[in-house]
Protein backbone atom coordinates (compact mmCIF):
# COMPACT_ATOMS: atom_id res chain seq x y z
CA UNK A 1 0.00 0.00 0.00
CA UNK A 2 2.71 2.38 1.02
CA UNK A 3 4.86 1.61 -1.98
CA UNK A 4 1.87 2.04 -4.30
CA UNK A 5 1.19 5.43 -2.82
CA UNK A 6 4.80 6.38 -3.16
CA UNK A 7 5.08 5.36 -6.77
CA UNK A 8 1.90 7.19 -7.68
CA UNK A 9 3.26 10.33 -6.10
CA UNK A 10 6.52 9.87 -7.91
CA UNK A 11 4.68 9.30 -11.16
CA UNK A 12 2.70 12.47 -10.61
CA UNK A 13 5.85 14.38 -9.98
CA UNK A 14 7.44 13.19 -13.19
CA UNK A 15 4.31 13.99 -15.18
CA UNK A 16 4.24 17.46 -13.68
CA UNK A 17 7.90 17.97 -14.46
CA UNK A 18 7.43 16.93 -18.07
CA UNK A 19 4.39 19.14 -18.54
CA UNK A 20 6.00 22.21 -16.97
CA UNK A 21 9.24 21.52 -18.77
CA UNK A 22 7.59 21.35 -22.16
CA UNK A 23 5.65 24.56 -21.55
CA UNK A 24 8.94 26.18 -20.58
CA UNK A 25 10.62 24.90 -23.72
CA UNK A 26 7.85 26.22 -25.94
CA UNK A 27 8.16 29.59 -24.22
CA UNK A 28 11.89 29.70 -24.87
CA UNK A 29 11.61 28.35 -28.40
CA UNK A 30 11.40 31.71 -30.21
CA UNK A 31 14.65 32.84 -28.64
CA UNK A 32 16.25 29.51 -29.47
CA UNK A 33 15.22 29.90 -33.11
CA UNK A 34 16.71 33.36 -33.13
CA UNK A 35 19.96 32.09 -31.69
CA UNK A 36 20.17 29.20 -34.15
CA UNK A 37 19.29 31.45 -37.06
CA UNK A 38 22.22 33.71 -36.31
CA UNK A 39 24.61 30.82 -36.93
CA UNK A 40 23.06 29.72 -40.17
CA UNK A 41 24.83 30.62 -43.35
CA UNK A 42 23.22 33.09 -45.75
CA UNK A 43 22.52 30.40 -48.31
CA UNK A 44 20.72 28.28 -45.75
CA UNK A 45 18.68 31.22 -44.47
CA UNK A 46 17.73 32.19 -48.02
CA UNK A 47 16.65 28.69 -48.76
CA UNK A 48 14.70 28.43 -45.49
CA UNK A 49 12.91 31.72 -45.86
CA UNK A 50 12.48 31.98 -49.62
CA UNK A 51 8.71 31.34 -49.56
CA UNK A 52 8.23 34.23 -47.11
CA UNK A 53 10.44 36.61 -49.04
CA UNK A 54 9.12 35.98 -52.51
CA UNK A 55 5.63 34.76 -51.61
CA UNK A 56 6.09 32.40 -54.56
CA UNK A 57 5.11 28.85 -53.76
CA UNK A 58 6.16 26.44 -51.09
CA UNK A 59 6.48 26.80 -47.37
CA UNK A 60 9.20 28.16 -45.16
CA UNK A 61 11.10 25.76 -42.98
CA UNK A 62 13.62 26.21 -40.26
CA UNK A 63 15.84 23.39 -39.11
CA UNK A 64 16.44 23.31 -35.37
CA UNK A 65 20.19 23.16 -35.99
CA UNK A 66 22.29 25.04 -38.52
CA UNK A 67 23.53 22.81 -41.33
CA UNK A 68 26.90 24.57 -41.52
CA UNK A 69 27.35 26.71 -38.40
CA UNK A 70 29.15 29.94 -39.19
CA UNK A 71 30.17 33.19 -37.54
CA UNK A 72 29.93 35.12 -40.79
CA UNK A 73 26.74 36.90 -39.76
CA UNK A 74 28.47 38.24 -36.68
CA UNK A 75 31.54 39.24 -38.64
CA UNK A 76 29.33 41.15 -41.04
CA UNK A 77 27.60 42.82 -38.11
CA UNK A 78 30.80 43.84 -36.36
CA UNK A 79 32.84 44.96 -39.34
CA UNK A 80 30.34 46.02 -41.97
CA UNK A 81 27.54 47.76 -40.13
CA UNK A 82 28.59 51.00 -38.46
CA UNK A 83 24.87 51.89 -38.08
CA UNK A 84 24.51 49.16 -35.57
CA UNK A 85 27.08 50.70 -33.22
CA UNK A 86 25.25 54.02 -33.37
CA UNK A 87 21.87 52.56 -32.44
CA UNK A 88 23.35 50.27 -29.84
CA UNK A 89 25.00 53.26 -28.23
CA UNK A 90 21.72 55.22 -28.42
CA UNK A 91 19.95 52.45 -26.54
CA UNK A 92 22.63 52.24 -23.89
CA UNK A 93 22.64 56.01 -23.45
CA UNK A 94 18.88 56.13 -23.01
CA UNK A 95 18.87 53.24 -20.54
CA UNK A 96 21.77 54.31 -18.37
CA UNK A 97 21.06 58.03 -18.16
CA UNK A 98 17.42 57.27 -17.37
CA UNK A 99 18.35 54.79 -14.67
CA UNK A 100 20.97 57.08 -13.16
CA UNK A 101 18.44 59.90 -13.12
CA UNK A 102 15.83 57.69 -11.54
CA UNK A 103 18.31 56.84 -8.83
CA UNK A 104 19.09 60.49 -8.13
CA UNK A 105 15.48 61.66 -8.22
CA UNK A 106 13.60 58.56 -7.16
CA UNK A 107 15.55 57.37 -4.14
CA UNK A 108 15.28 60.62 -2.16
CA UNK A 109 11.63 60.98 -3.18
CA UNK A 110 10.92 57.45 -1.97
CA UNK A 111 12.75 58.18 1.29
CA UNK A 112 10.64 61.28 1.84
CA UNK A 113 7.46 59.31 1.22
CA UNK A 114 8.53 56.58 3.60
CA UNK A 115 9.93 58.79 6.37
CA UNK A 116 7.92 61.96 6.65
CA UNK A 117 4.33 62.70 7.31
CA UNK A 118 3.08 65.70 5.49
CA UNK A 119 -0.20 67.25 4.52
CA UNK A 120 -1.93 65.46 1.67
CA UNK A 121 0.58 62.61 1.64
CA UNK A 122 -2.12 59.97 1.23
CA UNK A 123 -3.77 61.85 -1.61
CA UNK A 124 -0.45 62.45 -3.31
CA UNK A 125 0.42 58.80 -2.99
CA UNK A 126 -2.86 57.52 -4.45
CA UNK A 127 -2.36 60.00 -7.22
CA UNK A 128 1.12 58.66 -7.80
CA UNK A 129 -0.11 55.10 -8.07
CA UNK A 130 -2.83 55.96 -10.54
CA UNK A 131 -0.39 57.98 -12.60
CA UNK A 132 2.00 55.04 -12.51
CA UNK A 133 -0.64 52.77 -13.92
CA UNK A 134 -1.69 54.92 -16.84
CA UNK A 135 -0.53 53.54 -20.16
CA UNK A 136 1.66 55.71 -22.33
CA UNK A 137 -1.21 56.59 -24.66
CA UNK A 138 -2.91 58.60 -21.92
CA UNK A 139 0.10 60.74 -21.14
CA UNK A 140 1.48 60.84 -24.67
CA UNK A 141 -0.09 64.15 -25.62
CA UNK A 142 0.76 65.95 -22.40
CA UNK A 143 4.33 64.67 -22.58
CA UNK A 144 4.55 65.84 -26.16
CA UNK A 145 3.27 69.32 -25.36
CA UNK A 146 5.76 69.78 -22.53
CA UNK A 147 8.71 68.33 -24.41
CA UNK A 148 7.84 70.42 -27.44
CA UNK A 149 7.79 73.57 -25.35
CA UNK A 150 11.19 72.67 -23.99
CA UNK A 151 12.48 72.04 -27.51
CA UNK A 152 13.40 68.47 -26.69
CA UNK A 153 11.38 66.66 -29.33
CA UNK A 154 13.64 64.67 -31.63
CA UNK A 155 16.41 64.45 -29.06
CA UNK A 156 17.23 61.50 -26.81
CA UNK A 157 16.16 63.68 -23.88
CA UNK A 158 12.54 63.37 -24.95
CA UNK A 159 12.79 59.72 -23.91
CA UNK A 160 15.14 60.13 -20.97
CA UNK A 161 13.50 63.01 -19.13
CA UNK A 162 9.99 61.53 -18.72
CA UNK A 163 11.72 58.27 -17.78
CA UNK A 164 13.68 59.89 -14.98
CA UNK A 165 10.53 61.27 -13.40
CA UNK A 166 8.46 58.14 -13.82
CA UNK A 167 6.68 57.09 -10.67
CA UNK A 168 7.19 53.35 -10.76
CA UNK A 169 10.72 53.20 -9.28
CA UNK A 170 9.71 55.63 -6.53
CA UNK A 171 6.87 53.34 -5.61
CA UNK A 172 9.06 50.24 -5.62
CA UNK A 173 11.86 51.81 -3.58
CA UNK A 174 9.33 53.31 -1.18
CA UNK A 175 8.19 49.76 -0.46
CA UNK A 176 11.58 48.65 0.75
CA UNK A 177 12.19 51.86 2.71
CA UNK A 178 8.92 51.57 4.54
CA UNK A 179 9.90 48.04 5.56
CA UNK A 180 12.73 49.41 7.71
CA UNK A 181 11.70 49.08 11.38
CA UNK A 182 10.91 52.45 12.96
CA UNK A 183 12.72 51.48 16.15
CA UNK A 184 15.99 51.06 14.32
CA UNK A 185 15.80 54.56 12.91
CA UNK A 186 14.85 56.05 16.27
CA UNK A 187 17.71 54.27 18.01
CA UNK A 188 20.14 55.68 15.49
CA UNK A 189 18.65 59.12 15.92
CA UNK A 190 19.08 58.95 19.70
CA UNK A 191 22.69 58.00 19.13
CA UNK A 192 23.04 61.30 17.35
CA UNK A 193 22.66 60.42 13.68
CA UNK A 194 21.28 63.17 11.46
CA UNK A 195 18.68 62.62 8.75
CA UNK A 196 21.38 62.46 6.11
CA UNK A 197 23.27 59.80 8.05
CA UNK A 198 20.07 57.80 8.54
CA UNK A 199 19.52 57.89 4.81
CA UNK A 200 23.07 56.89 3.87
CA UNK A 201 23.90 54.45 6.65
CA UNK A 202 20.56 52.73 7.21
CA UNK A 203 18.21 53.62 4.38
CA UNK A 204 20.42 52.81 1.44
CA UNK A 205 21.80 49.46 2.70
CA UNK A 206 18.44 48.19 3.90
CA UNK A 207 16.56 49.56 0.92
CA UNK A 208 19.02 48.16 -1.58
CA UNK A 209 16.68 45.32 -2.56
CA UNK A 210 14.08 47.80 -3.74
CA UNK A 211 16.65 49.92 -5.51
CA UNK A 212 18.11 46.94 -7.35
CA UNK A 213 14.64 45.66 -8.23
CA UNK A 214 13.82 49.05 -9.70
CA UNK A 215 17.09 48.92 -11.60
CA UNK A 216 16.44 45.51 -13.13
CA UNK A 217 12.82 46.22 -14.04
CA UNK A 218 13.83 49.66 -15.32
CA UNK A 219 16.59 48.26 -17.48
CA UNK A 220 14.31 45.75 -19.16
CA UNK A 221 11.67 48.42 -19.64
CA UNK A 222 13.85 51.15 -21.11
CA UNK A 223 15.85 48.77 -23.22
CA UNK A 224 12.75 47.72 -25.12
CA UNK A 225 10.84 50.99 -25.37
CA UNK A 226 8.85 51.33 -28.55
CA UNK A 227 6.03 53.81 -28.05
CA UNK A 228 8.07 56.78 -26.83
CA UNK A 229 10.86 56.79 -29.43
CA UNK A 230 8.31 56.06 -32.13
CA UNK A 231 6.38 59.17 -31.22
CA UNK A 232 9.16 61.55 -30.20
CA UNK A 233 12.18 60.69 -32.36
CA UNK A 234 12.16 61.48 -36.06
CA UNK A 235 15.80 61.08 -37.08
CA UNK A 236 16.77 57.50 -37.63
CA UNK A 237 20.25 58.03 -36.24
CA UNK A 238 18.70 58.81 -32.85
CA UNK A 239 16.71 55.60 -32.80
CA UNK A 240 17.31 52.94 -30.18
CA UNK A 241 17.74 49.28 -31.07
CA UNK A 242 14.09 48.54 -30.46
CA UNK A 243 13.05 50.63 -33.46
CA UNK A 244 16.06 49.87 -35.63
CA UNK A 245 15.97 46.07 -35.53
CA UNK A 246 12.52 45.56 -37.08
CA UNK A 247 13.60 47.79 -39.98
CA UNK A 248 16.27 45.35 -41.10
CA UNK A 249 13.81 42.80 -42.43
CA UNK A 250 14.23 39.29 -43.66
CA UNK A 251 15.93 40.34 -46.90
CA UNK A 252 19.10 40.71 -44.86
CA UNK A 253 18.30 37.71 -42.73
CA UNK A 254 21.85 36.96 -41.59
CA UNK A 255 22.40 40.47 -40.36
CA UNK A 256 18.93 40.65 -38.81
CA UNK A 257 19.47 37.47 -36.81
CA UNK A 258 22.94 38.39 -35.60
CA UNK A 259 21.88 41.94 -34.70
CA UNK A 260 18.87 40.66 -32.76
CA UNK A 261 21.02 38.24 -30.79
CA UNK A 262 23.58 40.91 -29.93
CA UNK A 263 20.77 43.26 -28.91
CA UNK A 264 19.40 40.54 -26.69
CA UNK A 265 22.67 40.03 -24.82
CA UNK A 266 22.50 43.02 -22.44
CA UNK A 267 18.90 42.21 -21.52
CA UNK A 268 19.68 38.55 -20.91
CA UNK A 269 22.75 39.52 -18.90
CA UNK A 270 20.74 41.78 -16.62
CA UNK A 271 17.98 39.19 -16.42
CA UNK A 272 20.31 36.38 -15.35
CA UNK A 273 22.20 38.48 -12.83
CA UNK A 274 19.13 40.16 -11.44
CA UNK A 275 16.48 37.48 -11.57
CA UNK A 276 16.14 37.42 -7.80
CA UNK A 277 15.57 41.15 -7.71
CA UNK A 278 13.28 40.91 -10.70
CA UNK A 279 11.06 38.45 -8.83
CA UNK A 280 11.16 40.50 -5.65
CA UNK A 281 10.34 43.59 -7.66
CA UNK A 282 7.37 41.93 -9.32
CA UNK A 283 5.99 40.80 -5.99
CA UNK A 284 6.64 44.15 -4.31
CA UNK A 285 5.05 46.12 -7.14
CA UNK A 286 1.91 44.08 -6.70
CA UNK A 287 1.56 44.43 -2.95
CA UNK A 288 -1.11 46.70 -1.71
CA UNK A 289 -0.52 49.51 0.70
Amino acid sequence: MFSFHFSKKKYNNIARGILLGSIGSIICLPVYLLFIGSFKGLAELKENLMPILTEAGGMAEFGLFPQYPTFLNYLELFFDKPDFYVVFFNSMKIVFITLAGQLLAGVPAAWAFARFRFLGKQVLFTFYIILMMMPFQVTMLSNYLVLNNMGLINTNWSIILPGIFSTFPVFLIYRSFSGIPKGLLEAARIDGAGEWQLFIRIGLPLGSTGILSAFVLGFLEYFSLIEQPLAFLKDKDLWPLSLYLPEIGLEEAGYAFAASVVALIPAVFVFLLGQDYLEKGIVASAMKE
Partner: peptide, 20 residues
Protein backbone atom coordinates in the same frame (compact mmCIF):
# COMPACT_ATOMS: atom_id res chain seq x y z
CA UNK B 1 13.57 31.43 -15.21
CA UNK B 2 12.19 29.85 -18.35
CA UNK B 3 8.74 31.34 -17.78
CA UNK B 4 10.08 34.77 -16.88
CA UNK B 5 12.51 34.88 -19.76
CA UNK B 6 10.19 36.53 -22.32
CA UNK B 7 9.91 39.49 -19.99
CA UNK B 8 13.57 40.18 -20.65
CA UNK B 9 13.26 39.75 -24.39
CA UNK B 10 12.66 43.08 -26.13
CA UNK B 11 9.80 42.82 -28.61
CA UNK B 12 12.09 44.11 -31.33
CA UNK B 13 14.46 41.17 -31.14
CA UNK B 14 11.82 38.52 -31.74
CA UNK B 15 9.86 40.32 -34.44
CA UNK B 16 11.83 38.32 -36.96
CA UNK B 17 10.69 35.08 -35.40
CA UNK B 18 7.08 36.25 -35.20
CA UNK B 19 7.14 37.13 -38.90
CA UNK B 20 8.66 33.78 -39.68
Amino acid sequence: SAYLFPMAVPAATVVLIWKM
